[in-house]
Amino acid sequence: MNTEPLNEQLETALRQLTSQGARISFTAIAAQLGIPRSSLYRNPVARELIHQRITETHADAEKNMAADVNRLRLLIDTLAARVRNHEERLRQLERRPHSTPQ
């Protein structure tokens, strides 16, 4: 098997899987290419390229997760402030004394 066409096909398969948001794995790529996984494992260039893309994907996922956590933290803080505001308004409407949360 000529490695040049396989590597070109591999690049195409990696782009397609990435654009679909699919998990990058030897199994997924082999299925996309219609070849056995062993063909990918035996090809050192293909193996290295797949490992590199898997590493990049994990790094991107961690960055996205950190951004999502920060966004959720901001939303929670905003929601907590609104709840405190509503509790204070209810207290005023019911003319209850202010009580501090325990």
Rank of each mutant, 00 (worst) to 15 (best):
A30C: 09
R91E: 09
T3G: 00
R42V: 02
H58T: 05
S25F: 04
A46T: 13
E62R: 12
K63M: 07
L72R: 08
E88D: 06
A31H: 05
L75H: 10
G34D: 04
L33W: 05
N7Q: 14
S38G: 03
V69N: 10
E62H: 08
Q102A: 08
M65P: 00
H58L: 11
I50V: 15
K63V: 11
A13D: 02
S99T: 12
A66T: 05
R91L: 03
P44D: 13
G21T: 12
D77M: 11
L17K: 04
P101C: 01
D60V: 02
V45N: 08
Q9A: 06
R71H: 06
I29S: 05
L14N: 05
E48S: 09
V45W: 06
R37V: 11
S39D: 14
E62A: 13
R47N: 15
E56K: 09
I76G: 00
P97W: 09
L14V: 03
R47F: 14
M1N: 00
M65H: 11
A66D: 08
R89P: 00
H58E: 14
T12K: 15
R84M: 04
R23L: 07
R47V: 03
R73V: 03
L33G: 05
E11T: 04
N7K: 07
S38W: 07
E4P: 00
Q9N: 13
Q52E: 14
N70T: 04
R84P: 00
